[in-house]
Amino acid sequence: MASESELNAGIEDGVRRRDFINIAAVSFAGVGSVAVVLPLLNQMSPSADVLALSSTEIDISAIQPGQAIKTSWRKQPVFVRNLVAKEIAEAKAVPLSDLRDPQTIDERTKPGKENWLITLGVCTHLGCVPLGAAEGENRGDFGGYFCPCHGSHYDTAARIRKGPAPTNLVVPPYEFTSDTVVTIG
């Protein structure tokens, strides 16, 4: 048994040893609880196999000017379009001040390969796949892509021009590994 004097040790500054022990114990339990919650929340983040995103190689030799193909990377659709000169000219003619998400076509393509427009086929509004990659699909008011879900229109450089989407179609990281092969990722 602790004597009265031991229990009241240090009481002159208002804090007893027992108060210190109480606060320390409860704080430690609190830290422990938080530490346990972290893995329980973090388990929901993308797992290692999902993150181990393989890069995708695409053969672009068969894509004629004016054509586009739809492929996939990280399970997301990717549009590869071979722009014609008129489409490039149209994209260059737009003043940047007219754009919601100002970017030139040069910033969205590789130097010397500005006819190859490679973007994710994921509308930046709520993630639908826009139309316009396949032959005969609605390409919207600006001749690029059109998302039918909520009516976003993208221009020939896949930049947002009209509708609710906040940003241009995303250009994924990619490299030309040869003149006819592109590696995405």
């Binding site: 929901m44 983040s45 993308p46 797992s47 999902v50 990280r74 399970k75 997301q76 709520l126 993630g127």
Partner: peptide, 24 residues
């Protein structure tokens, strides 16, 4: 996709909810 509208943390929150980049 609603969650991706939240500034800055939106996209990470969406990936956390989905456990990936698309529903899978």
């Amino acid at each position: 996709g609603f969650f991706s509208a939240i500034p800055i943390v939106g996209e990470p929150v969406r990936e956390w909810l989905l456990g990936g980049f698309v529903p899978d």
